[in-house]
Amino acid sequence: MKALVYIIAGTAFGIVMAKSEAISWFRIQEMFRFQDFHMYGIIGTAVVLGVISVALIKKYKLRDFSGNPIVFSPKDKTWPRYIIGGTFFGLGWALTGACPGPLFVNLGYGFFAISIAILGALLGTWLYGLLRDKLPH
């Protein structure tokens, strides 16, 4: 039963990403060329509403559905990993036109070729795990 809740949330996510064309390579190109507001509108709306929501959750010390306190864990304050890792990620995002979520939404949409990129993403993740101790963080 609990499982179904997560599947439904994921399904909603997939539909939203597909219907707002956020899974489209063309939209990502438009974003990285600063030629349309669409993607900035999506991310911007989400961030503004997200900041307000998180602030309210903290202010009123809201609890989750099970009654547990909601805690937001801060990210580690070490910088190289974010700028270097982020740059690698951006290269892949602009090349495939998809970030991790849309890779899978595109698969469901019937673009089976994207499974090659999914395989690549798993290999990349594995590679990071192997090299982790040697990389600057």
Binding site: K75, D76, R81, Y82, I84, G85, G86, T87, F88, F89, G90, L91, G92, W93, L95, T96, A98, C99, P100, L103, A113, I114, I116, A117, I118, L119, G120, A121, L122, L123, G124, T125, W126, L127, Y128, G129, L135
Partner: peptide, 16 residues
């Protein structure tokens, strides 16, 4: 597709 995916997976985990 393969290298694009590789960059996404490596970069996402590296950047956390």
């Amino acid at each position: 597709l393969l290298i694009g995916g590789l960059l996404i997976g490596f970069g996402a985990r590296y950047a956390g």
